[in-house]
Structure formats: structure tokens, C-alpha cells
Simulated scan of single mutants.
Amino acid sequence: MALIDLTRDLVSIPSHEDETAAGDFVEQWLRRETDADVTQDSVGNVIARKGTGDETLALVGHHDVVEPAASQVATADEDGATEYAVDERDGRLYGRGTADMKGAVAAALLAFRDADPAGELVVASFVGEEVGGVGARHAIDEGFAPDYAVVGEGSTNYSGPDVTDVAVAHKGRRGSTITARGTAAHASEADAGENAIYRATAAVDRVRDLEPPSVDVAGETLEGRLTVTEIEGGSAMNVVPARCAFTVDERTVPGERAAIERAADLEGVEWTVDQDLPPMRCEDEAFAETVLEAATGAQTAEPELVTKPHATDAGWLSQAGTECVICGPSEPGEAHTDDESVSIDVLERCRETYRRIAEQWPPAR
């Protein structure tokens, strides 16, 4: 079965530290199986194009994975190279990256090969999604700008076990460090210094008083969240601290941000953004409904337009102007686990969904 074999081949290739071999495999497969224009860029993204038209639809995935558990690494092959373990049982494929998201990459590759597209069709497999969208950002900087994209992200918690829904929005994540500075002094003469911990706790109180924004999408409410997650400061029990810093994990929503900068209005307090993964929202209802129609035709269940709690490469694409939805093998509790797996039936419905949308979008104008 082509989808199973292709998924097994992709999953077996280690790609948590170095995605080169996996990217080379995808590039070689596309050159062998299609007549598309295939490129691999300087960071390892693989992009192929076929068809013509005024509007471009991209099937987007990533071939990097998170670090595997020991049980997910097979013994070295006859050439001495380590492979990831892949096991098929009870209608599922087990192994690191089966769900997130080499299975969906395989489904997208086959749909790309088999579809007779309505416009220009692109398939893209990026590097570095698990470490902040490195590949997607590079591709965008180099001019990657499809009009529409279906991102086949397989991360959990936006579909149920028996249905593959279409996510039209997701949260982002902004990670910040807030640093308070004071003046050191001996604790016996504390008034001679400025206590950075006191300034930091005042900033913590200000963060706690902020109201995270929320937005209603597809009948659901995406709620932002602010959480102080780490704090560090001081040098000795008898010294007034000159520095104290804490981190804030912020889950962002499309269109609005919490006003963390208010904490930096306090004397001696600085705010630094360490990571900012953008949220996503599809503003093109016709596109979302067309993808939903394709997903409905590919399964017996009744999929819905939903939202997703986690950031993906769709956030970077959406920020750059691409209308995005997410539709992939999302099953509760699978991605990033030590027994990660994906349903073969779910991969088949993803492949058929991708083929259908490629042949239906863009509609005749």
C-alpha cells in the first residue's frame, strides 16, 4: 500500500537533530514520482510546484520531529546508520513522527502526485517546525507566498478519535522575560539598596492583573492566557538582590495581545520577548467551507470547523498573508508521546481530503 510504505520510509529516517536525510528523501521521491518543479533550499525545505493559475494552493507539512524515546530508535542498519523504529499493528503505525507529522507529509505527497489541480498546486515540507518555525520563516523570507494553504499538522487536541476536523484558527505563544534591577546592599542595611525582588514581585502582580484577550471563532472561544512560569534572583541570604527575573508564558489569540508592557512601566523593570509564535485565523470563509466539503467527502463522520490550542507553521504563513486552514491526523494523546502512533484510516482520509481540495480550489471564477 503506497501510503503505508511511504509513511514507513519517512518515519524510519532520523530527523530530530538533522533533517538532511529526510529532506533528501522527499526531494528524490518528488523527482522520481512527479514531473513537478522541485527545489530544496539552503536550510533544507523541499518545495514542489505543478499546474498553472492565478492562485496558488499549498499543501504544507514538516519533516522534523521531536527527540525520540529510546524505544523509538531501532538498532543500526547494516551500514551502521541508526534508524527510527516503525511498527504496524491493529490498523496503526507506531513510531516517532507518525502523527506529527510524517504521516501527513506522505499523504500530501501522494495527493500532490495524483491530483489534477484546479490552479497552481504546491507541496512544501519544512524543517525546524518543532523549534519555532525555522524553515517556514526562511521560506517566507525567500518569497514563499501561496494564496492558500492546507497545513497537515498532526498535533493533538483539535479532532476526536473518529473524525478529522478542519481547524480555522489557533493560538500563538509569546514567551517573555521580565527583569527587575536594583542596587545591592548588605541585608543589615537594607535601606541602602533597592531590592530587585520587590520590584519583580510588583511586576508579577501587574502581570496577574492583566486581562488576557479572547476571540470567538467557528462557534468557539479562543482564550488567551498569561502564566508566570519561572523566577530567579538574589546572590546570598544576607545580600539585598540587585537583579531578579521571571518568565511569562502567554498564549495569544488572533488580533489582540495582552499589555505586558505595562509591567515594564515600573521603575527598574525591563521586558524582553524571547519567542513569539503567531496565532492564525482563516478570514476566507469560502476557502474554509471548501476544505470542509472536501474533508466531509473523504470520511463517513461529519467534520466541523474548529479551533486549535497549539501554534503551527500556519501562524507564520497567515502572518505573511496566506489564508490557512489546518487539517491533519489529529488524534487525542498521540503527538510527542513515547508510543506515538497514527491510524492508517485517518491518513487515508487526509490523503483523499488533500486530493479533493487540490482539484476543487480555486473555484472557477
Rank of each mutant, 00 (worst) to 15 (best):
D9Y: 07
D313Y: 02
G95S: 02
K102N: 08
V325G: 08
T247H: 11
R31F: 10
S330F: 06
L10E: 11
A245V: 11
E194W: 07
R8L: 02
A58S: 14
A301C: 02
H310S: 15
E289W: 11
A335T: 11
A200I: 02
R49G: 03
G128P: 01
T177R: 13
I4D: 14
E67H: 09
T290V: 05
P303V: 03
D87F: 10
V291F: 06
L6N: 09
Q299T: 06
E129W: 07
G132L: 02
A118E: 09
P363Q: 15
F112H: 11
E194D: 15
M1Y: 14
H186K: 13
G51C: 09
G160L: 02
S330V: 12
R206M: 12
A149R: 05
P241T: 05
Q299F: 01
G143Y: 05
F126S: 12
E83V: 09
A136E: 10
D77T: 01
V291P: 05
P213K: 02
D147L: 07
A2I: 13
G133L: 07
A2V: 14
D274P: 04
R206Q: 05
F126A: 06
V215P: 01
A200P: 01
P117R: 06
G154W: 04
G333K: 04
D141I: 07
E220Y: 05
V253N: 12
V43S: 09
W271E: 13
L30K: 11
A192M: 12
V122E: 01
R89P: 03
A236V: 13
P241G: 02
E256R: 11
R49Y: 09
E83W: 10
G103C: 10
E359P: 03
R365M: 07
R365D: 15
A288K: 03
A145H: 11
G297A: 15
I13R: 10
E33P: 14
T322R: 05
V306E: 00
E289F: 01
V239G: 02
R89Q: 14
A22H: 05
R199P: 11
V150L: 12
E88Y: 07
P279I: 03
S341R: 14
D79I: 08
S159K: 05
A111H: 09
E33Q: 13
L317Q: 12
T75Q: 15
G135C: 00
L292E: 10
N238D: 12
P363A: 15
E304M: 12
A70H: 06
N195I: 00
D24M: 03
A145C: 05
N157E: 15
G154K: 08
G233R: 01
